[in-house]
Nucleic acid binder design. Structure first.
Lengths: 116, 116
DNA sequence: CACATTCATCGATGTCTATCGATACAGGTC
DNA sequence: GACCTGTATCGATAGACATCGATGAATGTG
């Protein structure tokens, strides 16, 4: 019952329950990744990031080459995940990345510093 | 047709096609995120990260509290996405994070430096 | 060799979701 | 007011996927 990896191969088990994520934490993290787990949403985030300023839906739609309802759907998913913010100006909706969420995402993804 | 965001509101359109991701790039990126878009897979990655050494499936299964076939399924998805590596020792399979993939993931997620 | 154990695959099932066309809603323009 | 335009929502549909039990393959143990 030790933690050595390619173990002596008689018993193999390791109690790694230690610093495990809670069910809720895992679900929250997965929700963020799930929101980014679609090519069109990745492209939306990329477009918003490279734009650097709020972008109108009427610009997003032709850039993505998918129907307007589908764009609206993806934006809603990104917004629900907290990755994107909406800003309404008259008839037009402008979307931009949520800076805090981007920082949070970068933190989550950097697993290189995790220790046992 | 300028890039200012809350524009004068007469025309709103901005040509932001500039540094857009290709279809393939977007799909590849989304595939990585999709692989992480499940609570159990997030927990697997977390367990592997905090273990710091290859972990036996027989340790993962009780730690996750789901059936063994399901664990196997998730591991396969993570492995297909290139996030995880398998190492077989006798009857046992040991899984560990792919360091290069982790670095790549951290790079992808850090959108804070993107410029227009 | 017979048996047990570990893990991957298979088949089935229920749920989720991406996509679109049609429609409703909200602002602006005349 | 009537009309146009940009967005969001609705309803339907096809495809993807998480989950499990059963089975199979590989390896060790008696």
């Amino acid at each position: 019952m030790t933690a050595e990896a390619p173990a002596p191969a008689a018993t193999c088990c390791v109690p790694l329950g230690a610093s495990a994520l809670s069910e809720e934490e895992a679900q929250a993290t997965a929700a963020v990744f799930k929101a980014l787990g679609d090519p069109n949403r990745v492209r939306i985030v990329n477009l918003l990031a490279s734009a650097g300023a709020p972008v109108c839906v009427c610009d997003l739609t032709p850039a993505l080459g998918i129907s307007q309802p589908t764009v609206s759907h993806h934006l809603k998913r990104l917004r629900t995940a907290g990755l994107v913010r909406r800003e309404q100006h008259g008839t037009w909706s402008y979307y931009s990345l949520d800076p805090a969420a981007m920082t949070h995402l970068a933190t989550i993804c950097d697993l290189r510093k995790v220790r046992p």
